[in-house]
Amino acid sequence: MIPASFDYTAPTTLADALAALAQGGDDAKILAGGQSLLPVLKLRMAAPGLLIDLGKIDELRGVRREGDTIVVGAMTTHHDVIADPLVREHLSLLAKTTEQVADAQVRYRGTLGGALAHADPAGDLGAVTVALDAQMRIAGPNGTRSVPAAQFFTDYFTTALAENEILTGIAFDSFAGWGAHYEKFHTVSQAWSTVAVAAAVLVAGGTVTAARVALTNMGPTPIRARAVEAALVDGPASDDAVRAAAQAATEGTAPVDDATAPAAYRSHLARVLTGRAVLAAAG
């Protein structure tokens, strides 16, 4: 399978990429790691006239600290996210989830920013950003802005990014010391999630003192399970209490019926996987 013809440019600065995007208009598409976009182009589900490859822009790569904030450059590959010492110390949930994305080859090419901008509801990393209240850093022709993850994902494969904007980085608070786990259910080892749950908890003396839980593929966007969080906090980190709190996982969700799973089964999965994810995170 061969994509339809397109023009290609690989700018070396963000400013040049924004200029190319402004010039290309709605016929231009950003190429990050290409692990979602290239299959889409090969299947001719999209045929942009211009691809703007961000692969040569060094300023978009790597993880850095800005005071108490950890910023992951949008073009940092999954492989590099997993290996990064700042991520491992402060963002265990991001590291553990990224380890479960696709397979090793895809993780060498795919990027955090690319996966988030693609906004596949079955993609794993959106739930992490929603659970951890990440800020999406966005550059456009009129400067930069920051959008909370909960407002970034707006619908199936749709984000708050305007067509002349580029996602440049993802900023997280530190979650050092929190337990974290990503519980993923899929039918084939490298496949997309049927349903998955991202959980991070702080436990002191057997009591849950803080909890973040978000769901993958239980609606058009990643969904924060606030009812579960509320039920967990100030309760014991026990098997019974966590499984009881997990019953609230389907509040506010809208799972699809499709060839992989009926909606009712997805709801069942959400409750079971939430219990497992929180218990594993609580250690």
Binding site: Y8, L38, Q105
Partner: peptide, 24 residues
């Protein structure tokens, strides 16, 4: 379609699926 891995090569030493990388 980037599932099977038959086309895997090393790009700067990293294993990648060469059906999902452009020559450019």
């Amino acid at each position: 379609t980037s599932n099977c891995g038959a086309c895997t090569v090393l790009l700067d030493g990293a294993s990648v699926k060469s059906c999902s990388v452009l020559a450019v």
